[in-house]
Simulated assay, not measured.
Amino acid sequence: MFERLISKLHEPKTSYITLETTPRHDADFLSVVDTIEKLGIADRVDGFSTTDNPLAKLKFNAIIAAMQLQQRFGKPVLATMSMRDRNKIALQSDLLGANGIDVRAILALTGDPAKISDQPAAKGVFESDSSMLLDIIKCFNAGIDYAGREFGIKPKPIYPFAVSNAFAKNPKTLLKKFVKKLDHGALGIITQPVFDKENLLKLLELFEEAKEISGKKEGVLIVGLFPVTKLKTAQFLASHVPGIHVPKSWIDRLYEAHKKSEKEEHKHGLALSREIFESVKTIHPKIHLMTANRFTLAKKLLEG
């Protein structure tokens, strides 16, 4: 199933959609899987992802969650692994365990700072940034560990993914990060949410330049999309989340709708989200949909 996912990723005009899932602060993830099944969403996506303690908040394990999604739907899952919580020993141990249960698409993430954790006095590990994990995956795919020792039983192929901001005041910052992640072996780079066509076109231009610089022609940009149906969400993203650009037109339209009613606000937000979703599908149909587990909203977008 991983080979088919990567094949679709590399086919320029072929639709490729993955859906993010966020394990909860519970000793269970199957309730999330059940919701996805009940809504019939799995039939409309090529795969899923599972987040790894986002915002340094304690959640159910991303690798086990990925396994449960794969077992239920028979579709590949990108399991996120954060550098914040593991040194190189733990990273490799988790990769071996994930390999043994056939979780073999890995989204390498540096991770949010531990100082914002909900766990008292939690400390981040951060032996390196996510490029180390990408390098470890390279080693595993060559049949050796990060220290160069050969495995008796070699791991099955692992498919590495990475993340990137969607916007920077200085575009060269994004270009440099694209090049670095391609150089370290990322097959796909998922952006933070994109909210307008101009932002999308600039990202695609920078990514093509990065592929030329790195010589890694097989790398693919995957456009992050996050449907926004509330003014306060759009305003928060615009004001507090670096690496994202929310156009003033979105804020203004949601503001006018908000003054009328909550229903109007939702309707206009959904319409704006559909517009960018359809625009990306037309221009570059490689999408990673993030809805913070609002799977009913995901279904509305996926159904068009």
Rank of each mutant, 00 (worst) to 15 (best):
L301C: 03
L187Q: 04
E262Q: 09
E11G: 04
S128M: 04
T80D: 08
H266F: 14
D102G: 12
L204Y: 09
K259E: 03
E218C: 11
E205A: 14
R294A: 09
L91F: 05
L231A: 04
L270V: 03
R86L: 02
I106W: 08
G185P: 03
S82F: 02
R253Y: 04
G188F: 00
R4V: 07
M81P: 04
N141F: 14
P76Y: 14
I276H: 04
T21F: 07
Y159G: 03
I189V: 13
G111R: 05
I17L: 07
K88N: 05
K138W: 12
L134Y: 02
T51Y: 05
L231K: 09
V228H: 00
T21R: 08
F2A: 05
E218D: 15
I136T: 12
A42F: 07
N293W: 08
V246E: 03
G124M: 06
F140C: 13
L39F: 02
E275V: 08
A108S: 14
A90T: 02
F73E: 07
P155V: 08
L301N: 01
G188S: 03
I276L: 07
D34A: 09
S249W: 04
F295R: 01
E127N: 10
A238K: 06
P23V: 15
L289Y: 04
E265W: 10
D118I: 05
E278W: 04
S131A: 06
E127S: 09
M132K: 08
P242V: 01
F195C: 07
S128R: 09
S279Y: 03
R104M: 12
H10W: 07
A66H: 12
G243S: 00
R274D: 02
P242L: 00
T233Q: 06
G215C: 10
E278C: 05
K13Y: 08
K177G: 06
A147M: 14
K211M: 04
T173K: 08
E303Q: 05
V246L: 03
L58G: 06
F48G: 09
D145L: 11
K286W: 01
G152L: 10
D43G: 13
K181G: 07
I17V: 12
T50C: 15
R86C: 00
S31D: 13
V103K: 12
G243H: 00
F151S: 01
G152V: 11
